[in-house]
């Protein structure tokens, strides 16, 4: 295994999902997606329109987050990123609370725009740097953003992939469920099963994610790190191999 950090690995996976020419947006508290999108922008996606919340160089709006949300509601984003305090096998995200809402065990930050963006952004990649049974659960306690909707609900977009330090899940739209698509090098089926709170489909034949190339790692540790530091200085200090 190439020596690199989990964040570098995840950012590389995310970069490979960005397509040239798309309009790609990254919201709040999302340094790993921001790194991945910039890596793509600096390599195979120079014509992508990149929107990074709170970044001085990648924020093409003048009227606060309202203008951003209005743009998203028009279907302006091809790719967006969300996360969750709990994520379940059906792609449901919980950003509300763990346990009873009135007396929560953990009060999560709230759904904010997630219950709109999960419907309106054409492809949503869910990311989480912790892959554990407390995060990846059979059923979330509260659904801030449902993974799927009945056909009568207007929903041009939805979950596409879930990226973690262990694997990539693909969202199967017919089964309305997460399916393991690939694993990072060295991750065994036993480890993945042990660290996931819902039963996995057969993962015997899943692909191994290609290692980040030396070119990808070099860019991440130089241009991407410098750009990300403008929004996430602490992340830039700790997430990249020096």
């Amino acid at each position: 295994m190439t020596p690199c950090t989990p964040q570098e690995r995840m950012a590389t996976v995310i970069a490979r999902e960005v397509r040239d020419g798309e309009t790609v947006a990254v919201g709040t508290l999302a340094p790993v997606p921001a790194s991945g999108v910039l890596l793509a922008h600096f390599t195979h996606a120079p014509r992508a329109r990149v929107v990074l919340l709170n970044h001085p160089d990648y924020w093409p709006f003048r009227q606060g987050s309202k203008e951003f949300y209005d743009f998203a509601q028009r279907g302006g984003f091809d790719l967006f990123f969300l996360s969750g305090g709990q994520i379940d096998r059906h792609g449901n995200l919980n950003l509300i609370a763990v346990g009873d809402v009135e007396r929560p065990r953990v009060r999560l930050p709230g759904g904010a725009g997630s219950a709109m963006l999960y419907y309106l952004a054409r492809r949503v990649i869910v990311f989480r740097t912790e892959h554990s049974p407390r995060i990846f659960v059979e059923r979330v306690d509260h659904v801030a953003s449902p993974g799927s909707s009945p056909p009568e609900v207007a929903r041009p977009g939805g979950p596409w992939k879930v990226v973690t330090p262990l694997c990539v899940f693909r969202f199967d739209r017919e089964r309305k469920a997460l399916v393991v698509e690939s694993v990072h090098p060295g991750v065994t089926r036993e480890e993945l099963a042990r660290r996931t709170g819902f039963a996995l489909d057969d993962v015997g034949s899943v692909e191994v994610i290609p290692e980040p190339t030396s070119g990808e790692l070099h860019l991440l540790r130089t241009r991407v790190r410098e750009a990300v530091a403008k929004t996430y200085p602490q992340f830039a200090e700790t997430a990249f191999t020096r």
Partner: peptide
């Protein structure tokens, strides 16, 4: 508001 239908915001 677009989206939101079917989420637990209907309940909460």
């Amino acid at each position: 508001v677009p989206g939101h239908v079917g989420s637990d915001y209907e309940r909460l």
